[in-house]
Design a protein around this nucleic acid. Structure first.
Lengths: 123, 123
DNA sequence: CATCTATGTTGACGTCCATCGATACACATG
DNA sequence: CATGTGTATCGATGGACGTCAACATAGATG
């Protein structure tokens, strides 16, 4: 139930594969591009999610068990909720190994978001 | 009434100036850093705002009059509302010239957001 | 000053969302 | 299989947010 549609970057949404991310400054985004990109930004638009994401991203080996990062001042269900949101946005992937669930950053998505914010080589 | 506190990047919020943006992957963000950064990401977390922002960013001379970009499928008050949000987030600045109001991107903020999403030089 | 256009503000409304406690599920271990 | 720990889901709740119509403000022009 979670096979296709991994990266919101390359939405195989309607008729084909749409690379969502020309730099924001290159041309006005279409409604569809904006929809896809906004999902990712929105996912990082919450302080708790940002801390969770950063905790995973900065953790040894690029991955972290939930137990390693859940000290962000909210309840355990809320942590789980936010991790799910980040996963749905394509920013994280998860894998269960025994008792623990490990989350890791989807580097390509992060890179693409960076591309989006790229500025033309101005002074 | 809009003099101090220009960049959410360098929040002169409480006791001093806090540069908000070590790469997300460098170390876990603090609550304060996350709060500041999340404001910016949240501002781009709406499709309409993203389109407006992109329209300004990609417009000739890096600035655009509201009338040039307000064709995003929502009412005029809504456009105004979103531009205000982008301005409050530090992503846009505005200037009135005669009848029209021109918005322009705050390049430094955009650059800092890009930094935030920087990945360590992995393969 | 009257009027027109461009933009911002206000107030209301419906929906989304972050949060929690309670509970369920997954795995390990005895 | 019983129990304990780690994680996810459910249902509820309060607040935030996107949207609009109506109105207000700013500048230009006659």
């Amino acid at each position: 139930m979670s096979n296709a549609k991994v990266l919101p970057l390359v939405e195989s949404d309607g008729q084909g594969v749409v690379p969502c991310c020309p730099p924001l400054t290159e041309r006005p985004m279409t409604a569809e591009e904006a929809e896809a990109a906004a999902r990712m930004f929105k996912a990082l638009g919450d302080p708790v999610r940002l801390r969770l994401f950063s905790a995973v991203a900065s953790h040894e080996g690029g991955e972290a068990c939930v137990c390693d990062i859940s000290d962000v001042g909210v309840s355990q269900p809320t942590v789980s909720h936010h991790l799910k949101k980040l996963k749905e946005a394509g920013l994280l992937t998860s894998e269960r190994r025994g008792t623990w669930v490990y989350y890791r950053v989807e580097a390509s998505v992060l890179a693409a978001m960076g591309q989006l914010l790229t500025l033309p080589a101005a002074a």
